[in-house]
Amino acid sequence: MSGGISFDSVSHTYRPARGRAVLALDRVSLAVREREFLALLGPSGCGKSTLLYLLGGFMPVETGRISVGGEPVTGPGPDRGIVFQNFALFPWKTVKQNILYGLEKQKLPRPEREKRAQEFIDLVHLTGFEDSYPSQLSGGMKQRVAIARTLAIDPAILLMDEPFGALDAQTRGLMHEELLGIMEHRPKTVVFVTHDVREAVYLADRVAVMSARPGRIKEIVEIGHNGRPAPEVVKSSEFIDKVDYLWDSVRKEALLAQSQKSDG
């Protein structure tokens, strides 16, 4: 299956049970190339997570069209794996059971499932924690379980919703390296939602900046790392310039969002 994604004039309105309807996304059009790492950057409340949830098929696409490999998205599917900010592990399942869950759904034969689960536990350096419950793990370990659980079913597309937002800076840095390492060996199309500019520039091939609500694609910036970025890249003037530029771009939107809020 092809991993190219296209958003075609996608709008989305939230209609809360009480209160007035809010236009979250306004005619968003965007194409994500196959095996590209695209970061969606924007101030909080700009609809970037909504865009991801629509692509995941968790909410119905009401206006416009989202297609994956030419096929319209109509619901969730194992071709699009997702990693959430708050890990979303099944707390009543152990590390191994969490990873096995998706493999069972994919109807893999038992020996194959066991082998694959162990392989991914080892991949995210959680060997020895197979039988631990999520409540016994640190935030970084939980997120590694969530990533392993999603990668184990080998989706063509990886959706990440501020996956490292709940982690401390140290752990976040380690997770970046781990993610890049995994991507090197198992390339996928990645849509990565974040409000961390440095994270976006470091990880992504392209960064799409979203405007304040209603969310639109404001601009797209090519990062163009040559292969996997080395950790030293963050010291290069090119990197710093891009971060500065994007920081300004997002800051304007964040200020705009703030003034919208104070307007009521």
């Binding site: 968790f58 599917g77 997702i82 959430f84 979303a88 009543w92 999603t150």
Partner: peptide
């Protein structure tokens, strides 16, 4: 938690399976 339901759906679970495999244990 809706993200638990979504995680199960994204893994390929049917809505009925989600009821028994996610909603009931969550409510336990």
């Amino acid at each position: 938690d809706r993200v638990l339901v979504w995680s199960a759906l994204a893994a390929g679970a049917t809505r009925r399976a989600v009821l028994w495999e996610v909603v009931v244990p969550s409510a336990l």
